[in-house]
Design a protein around this nucleic acid. Structure first.
Lengths: 135, 135
DNA sequence: TATCATATTTGTAATCGTTACAAAATTACA
DNA sequence: TGTAATTTTGTAACGATTACAAATATGATA
């Protein structure tokens, strides 16, 4: 998905496009490395000196509630965020700590056992060693 | 997997079977509801009055390191533990908060894009509303 | 059995990510 | 311009987890 006008995109999703919100969302679509709150804050506070970490928390929570970002819980001590809301997998390298995206077709997965359940979110992630760190 | 002798099972996995460790592991195999540290502690401290929560943390961390339990991170504020180490899916109901197990065959999932990665752990979980809460 | 070294458990304090909250700043609108 | 509503900010509080050192238990050896 291409988002040309971030402010308009936020508006379309029921979010008032304040300066901070636009900048946080822009950061997410330009840096698809699944940042933590701390990463987003540290990257943006240089350009927005008045930025508060609480604002980053509030903003990401709002985005998640409005379903324009995904919350990724792989490690118990770091919550990460992803502006790509399509169903896809994540691979976390245990060595370099990087999180990779990969396409995954879950339509072939048999979910008979929970066919009467309403599914709202899919999460599929792997842990291991990435190609680079193998060498 | 059936574990008849917990102490022996721990020994076989390089863990000295102390009283606390045996009791914690027994709790996990008898209560497959993916408990948190707090749940394990509260359930056992009645029978083991001297039990410390730190011991529960240490013990579960040791079990995870020795790969006899799985760490489940669905919510960012609650780490859960599972003595079933086979690859299987988890479903968390957003209403009753219960976590269900379900079998899932991931052999059909195409992982071409990361075929050069070493995969150590598979995690597949869904969120939604369970059958009971739908009614 | 007594002794000693090692491993485990325990309780407290510290840490860290996150949330609560109220004041300050900004925005929207009459 | 004035006023209400919304958003941002900074600080304090919270809760889960970890660090750490003392106490306890275990195991081997003599």
């Amino acid at each position: 998905m291409e988002i040309e006008n971030v402010a308009q995109y936020l508006k379309n999703n029921g979010i008032k496009p304040s300066y901070q919100r636009v900048r946080v969302f822009e950061y997410l679509i330009n840096n698809k490395n699944h940042p933590t709150v701390d990463t987003v804050f540290k990257e943006l506070v240089g350009e927005i000196p008045t930025l508060s970490k609480t604002t980053v928390y509030n903003t990401l929570k709002l985005f998640a509630k409005k379903n324009i970002i995904i919350v990724i819980n792989i490690e118990d001590n770091e919550t990460r965020y992803d502006a790509d809301t399509s169903v896809h997998g994540h691979f976390k390298c245990e060595k370099c700590r990087k999180v990779y995206d990969f396409d995954v077709d879950l339509s072939k997965v048999d979910l008979k056992k929970i066919s009467n359940f309403i599914i709202n979110e899919y999460h599929f992630y792997l842990k291991g060693i990435c190609e680079k760190c193998r060498e």
